[in-house]
Design a protein around this nucleic acid. Structure first.
Ligand SMILES: [Mn+2]
Ligand SMILES: [Mn+2]
Ligand SMILES: [Zn+2]
Ligand SMILES: [Zn+2]
Lengths: 147, 147
DNA sequence: GCGCTAATTGCAATATTATTGCATTTAGCC
DNA sequence: GGCTAAATGCAATAATATTGCAATTAGCGC
């Protein structure tokens, strides 16, 4: 929910401004990662002008608070879908329909950390994005009509 | 070795050109990910001019053959350090000195795939970059002079 | 070695993405 | 409602990336 994000912003002393609320709303409604200019375009369609510099700055802030994430494989931004979960947040991206699912799993992090330590590395955080077929697209690709 | 990469290019019918060899050499010698323009700059220092468009195209080709990888967290390119290893290639990046280590581990892939399947996803490949301190930097940070 | 040709590179123009400094506006406070 | 620090807008510029087409070149047969 957007309200959760707003509460976090307030708790940290950040102002609740029109552009910030608007960016949150757009990201909340999106079905895929959006670039800063995507966001600007969508807002403009609703008659709301926000300078792209402002959008960059808002996304910087949101990402620093983990309210949003940048999806590196596409370069776009998404609203965090699991704000309450500890540990690193990971993504699965459907290579067919673009659907994105966010998840977290401490076991995976532990495994990765362990492996890193064998190489002498002390991990601070993980960046993890997998590509594949979502349930829907996988079903279609082997449906009654064959592959 | 660069020779391995050259053999792969030849085997696939790609020509061995000056720019391609030069890009391979620069990447081989680099200690961190290089942007296309970094590469152009380094070559220029050696008196070798290569157009940036050419470098983009060469990197596209190399990445499609997994001779190089794009490191998403920094946007730069590295030469693959473990060409013989199967499965997805992962990176650990030192947040202090930028050192990069490439590795692969099938066990990690299996774990991730299993987790994805529980979410209904059928994984094609993983993108995995961890940030942390390399052995050297970690040693320094808790050396005799204290933290 | 020489010429041929497809593959590759260079060039020029343009698009996209991102950053900076400073003027203006506004949210939150009294 | 007025005050002020925080946030936004603006303008300029930097950095990154792509496209179409002309010029060059690697690899081939001779
Ligand atoms: Mn998240
Ligand atoms: Mn590799
Ligand atoms: Zn899908
Ligand atoms: Zn280091």
């Amino acid at each position: 929910m957007i309200q959760d994000s707003i509460r976090i912003l307030q708790a940290r002393g950040y102002k609740i401004t029109q552009p910030r609320k608007q960016v949150l709303e757009v990201l909340q409604g999106a079905q895929k990662p959006l670039s800063p200019y995507d966001i600007q375009g969508l807002l403009q369609k609703q008659g709301k002008y926000v300078n792209h510099v402002t959008i960059y700055r808002i996304l910087d802030l949101f990402c620093s608070l983990n309210l949003t994430h940048r999806v590196l494989s596409s370069g776009g931004f998404v609203k965090c879908a699991i704000e309450s979960k500890e540990g690193c947040h990971r993504f699965m991206v459907c290579s067919r329909c673009g659907a994105l699912q966010e998840f977290a799993d401490e076991e995976l992090c532990r495994d990765e950390n362990r492996f890193a330590q064998n190489l002498g590395f002390h991990t601070e955080y993980h960046l993890s994005e997998s590509s594949g077929l979502c349930a829907n697209c996988h079903k279609k690709s082997e449906g009654p009509e064959g592959v």
